[in-house]
Nucleic acid binder design. Structure first.
Length: 492
RNA sequence: GGCCCCAUCGUCUAGAGGCCAAGGACACCACCCUCUCAAGGUGGAGACACGGGUUCGAACCCCGUUGGGGCUGCCA
């Protein structure tokens, strides 16, 4: 056991070559958890040495996503594109020490020399040619022909690679630009990284990094942790192109960051007591890299949505309104915030219970804001058009609603028809009593009787509780919609 | 093809040799609750890939097979 505890320094090192997806987010999260519980530092490093594919816009997305998830960065972002001289210096050092050599082979040259059954990869053609480095010549690392390189991995134990199976890999392109293998090792040493926590796909290149690390300096080797990859329903590694799993997309559809955080945490790890929905503090206290699962995990949206629904329901009504409001404002850009709030707030509690994403609020509340309002065709036909009681029942209800409206003082002649009732007149309690009375008279159960009223006024056969919705809509609008429905029925 | 990783219900997992005739959660089905829909409650169906060892005893350890995945770029 070490007596001197060194500071833990980990890094999250994404390449900005596309949408930031949930796999990257999970890697960042596990790095964050590890750093926080060890009192260490999390460094963000943008690996943009591939100038062809990198784009600052993607970096911006990564930064925003991390902030949204509440994954705080202690240092950085550092950009590899700004550290080129460091890599070039290291490359020169490696050449001078004999660890690297210049190579002028093209892909075609190498393939041309390849015979049936020969080993894949580079054939070491230039190893002893003594070429001088320069433009048009790549720099390759001289990999030992014997021995094994072992990767010390917290999640997988010790993984051995025979050095013969590793080809003399390229450090510098023939253009003179450094490649990621070099940049990564130089940076990890320069930044004092102690633990490298990343996706399993990087495991095969790890022995190269280790060989390079040792050739560059005698600094203590880092400890690795290769996390299982996240896969799609076909059990293939999540891909930015193939799978729609951008963090930004989930944010846009109204996934709460705390839900995403929680779900990502338990995707590959579980606390001892088996609980699954918990606060970040619990993850911080109990997370254990050594307990992380070894096998690929399917990113199951259904489960994410379940987590999200749970988190939404645990919000206060006020918080829910605040979080969902942007989605409504986006859907109804012509409405003032106050117009939306005046109708949304009274229904927030019952809406919250019924959505699994914030975005779904828009659909549930559409009957309040859609202009012109028009009931769903199929539902109208089925529950009103084909009903043998709907028309007469609706007429009866309409009459009674009008009476309630007159008593309320906000009747069909009132100027405004919106806003919650004051508890007298046209309110949920009374409307329910009225409808039950009408239903009794017609010999109907409330469940059946409410259907045509619901479709006429709320537009669909399912949705928010009817009476609260009617109250919020107000007498004028409710009566108008019932009359419209009757007219539509007559016109058929 | 080569190298490497992995293997418990459809999915995420609990399980570190006896407490497992394998537990929880999502999804699914049924019922209850109920003004619809949800939410919630109760119950149900559903897994240790296969074959050899080791051991008094294996989901757990070892070997093999099969299956899946990753890497195999002068991408990261």
């Amino acid at each position: 056991m070490a007596t001197v505890s060194e500071e833990v320094r980990v890094r999250f090192a994404p390449s900005p070559t596309g949408y930031f997806h949930v796999g990257g987010a999970r890697t960042a999260l596990y790095n964050w958890l590890f750093a926080r519980q060890r009192g260490g530092k999390l460094i963000l490093r943008i690996e943009d040495t591939d100038t062809e594919r990198s784009d600052p816009a993607w970096t911006e997305g990564i930064l925003k996503a991390l902030e949204w998830l509440n994954i705080s960065i202690d240092e950085g972002p550092y950009f590899q594109s700004q550290r080129k001289n460091l890599y070039l210096g290291a490359a020169e050092k490696l050449f001078l020490s004999g660890h690297a050599y210049a190579c002028d082979c093209t892909r075609e040259d190498i393939d041309g020399r390849k015979k049936e059954g020969s080993k894949p990869g580079y054939d070491n053609y230039c190893r002893e040619r003594g070429l001088v480095p320069g433009v048009g010549r790549a720099l390759r690392f001289r990999v030992p022909d014997t021995g094994v390189t072992v990767v010390n991995d917290i999640v997988r134990g010790e993984v051995e690679f025979a050095n013969v199976s590793i080809e003399d890999f390229v450090l510098l392109k023939s253009s003179g630009d450094p490649l990621f293998v070099l940049a990564v090792v130089v940076d990890d040493q320069d930044m004092g990284i102690t633990h490298i926590i990343r996706a399993e796909e990087h495991l095969p290149t790890t022995p190269k990094a280790l060989l390079l690390w040792q050739a560059l300096s005698d600094k203590k080797l880092p400890v690795f942790a290769h996390l299982p990859v996240l896969v799609n329903e076909k059990r293939q590694k999540l891909s930015k192109r193939r799978d729609r799993v951008a963090v930004e997309d989930y944010r846009a559809m109204g996934i709460l960051p705390e839900a995403m955080f929680n779900y990502l945490t338990v995707l590959g790890w579980a606390p001892k007591d088996g609980s699954e929905i918990f606060k970040p503090e619990k993850a911080l206290a109990e997370f254990d890299l050594g307990q992380v699962n070894h096998s690929p995990a399917f990113f199951d949206e259904k489960r994410l949505f379940y987590f999200n629904g749970h988190y939404i329901r645990s919000l206060t009504d006020g918080d829910f309104v605040e979080r969902a409001l942007p989605h409504l404002e986006k859907a109804y850009p012509n409405l003032d915030r106050q117009d939306i709030l005046s109708k949304f707030v009274p229904l927030a509690a019952v809406t919250k219970e019924r959505v699994t994403t914030l975005e779904e609020s828009v659909g549930l509340l559409a009957f309040l804001f859609d202009v012109p309002f028009s009931p769903d065709g199929d539902d109208f036909q089925k529950l009103i058009g084909e009903s043998d009681f709907a028309e007469s029942f609706m007429r009866d209800v309409l009459e009674h609603f009008k009476q309630a409206a007159d008593a309320d003082g906000r009747g069909s002649l009132a100027e405004t028809g919106s806003g919650a009732g004051s508890g007298t007149g046209f309110d949920a309690e009374l409307l329910k009593a009225v409808l039950i009375q009408c239903a009794d008279k017609a010999g109907l159960k409330l469940a059946k009787a409410q259907a045509p009223i619901r479709v006429s006024v709320l537009g669909k056969k399912t949705g928010l509780p009817l009476f609260e919705a009617l109250e919020t809509l107000g007498p004028r609008e409710v009566i108008a919609r019932l009359e419209n429905a009757l007219a539509r029925l007559a016109a058929v």
